[in-house]
Design a binder for these strands. Structure first.
Lengths: 207, 207
DNA sequence: ACCTGAACACCGTTCAAGT
DNA sequence: ACCTGAACACCGTTCAAGT
């Protein structure tokens, strides 16, 4: 019994020694965010739950802010995967773009604390977290791509697709944020409200 | 000299004794937020800058969260004043509603940290801060009123005005949030982007 | 290279004591 | 009623020391 425990412990140690600690910290941090909110993520609690000492995280992250930026970056990457999955469906190009919007809102509502963290870094800090900025831009770019497809099919108004993407991002981000913050008592289904909102958006961007 | 200083000090004391401390704390907190960001607002620094002891704020606020909720509430009230001023202008009812949207976005961009604080309380905490929830709802209600005016003039689609207000709020809140967080490199003027975005919104809500 | 325990500065909050 | 200083528990971060 005792020997087994010792063996397991040393195996764990070995793992972190070889570069898994960074990924392990990000995973555990994401779990803590989902379970107990952003306030529950202290470096001390995170270290303990990951099985390392308090100062071990500093080998992989300069400080807590950089670690949280990395967690946020993971969130943008997961969101991008959801959006790309919708983008590659069959069917009408305009309907597909609307479905991207609905998927965006659903991701945010299903991961409220993580989504909030993704947007919690101030403008001035963007230069300090280039990976985070790039992951956010990749999400934005997927909206631009969807808009360009609609424009090419003559289903959306002409003009710089980025300008239209600003409007689209503002709409879905705004609705998601208001729902997460509890400012809107979601009248019935979230999906219904998301469908209605994205429908109004499409009419505002119509050709 | 010494007597003057003593006199001034006792005058200050007198003031806080008679119920101004609450208002003074809210004012100083708002200043600190604008000058040094939300992280600069510690109860200890706030107390010192207001000229009272560390624990004095607890006579007026149960804890830091309640104090910040009161600061946020003040923000909603100031925003509401801006929106009402636009609402009472002369001119086309639809143009006026668009101007409300632009004014909303400008308020947020001019008071970025304060605006962020206004939306930083989670859904679950709304019951704990009824004044904050009411002030937020008053802003929402002003949008509903503006929409009803447009509907009455036959300039906006029929249906529950609250549903349309959700879309409008999501659009302006989303654009404001993305600008504050630095996700959008505002292409040129903020006012121009706000005008374009609200124009697309109006077309999405058109009769 | 990576990990550790001890220590430092800072914070929110409580409480017995003052007026 | 309102205010105060001292004390407690907790946190992010640093650093000399280990392997």
């Amino acid at each position: 019994m005792l020997r087994d425990n010792e063996s397991m412990a040393s195996t764990k140690r070995e793992t972190y020694h070889h570069g898994d600690l960074r990924a392990a910290l990000l995973d555990v941090a994401a779990e803590m965010i989902a379970a107990g909110g952003i306030e529950s993520v202290t470096l001390r609690a995170l270290s303990e739950r990951t099985g390392v000492s308090r100062t071990a995280p500093y080998r992989h992250f300069a400080d807590k802010s950089v670690l949280l930026a990395a967690v946020a970056e993971e969130g943008f990457k997961r969101l991008l995967q959801h959006l790309r999955a919708v983008e590659q469906r069959e069917g009408d190009v305009l309907t597909r773009f609307q479905q991207m919007g609905v998927a965006y809102i659903q991701f945010a509502v299903e991961n409220p604390t993580h989504y909030r963290l993704m947007f919690s870094h101030e403008r001035a800090q963007h230069d300090a977290h280039p990976g985070l900025a790039a992951a956010g831009k990749a999400v934005f770019d997927s909206l631009v791509t969807g808009i360009q497809a609609c424009q090419a099919a003559g289903r959306m108004r002409a003009g710089d697709p980025r300008g239209l993407a600003y409007v689209a991002w503002a709409t879905v981000h705004g609705l998601a944020s208001l729902l997460i913050d509890g400012q809107l008592r979601a009248p019935g289904d979230v999906g219904e409200l998301a469908a209605f909102t994205t429908q109004r958006l499409l009419e505002g961007l119509a050709a």
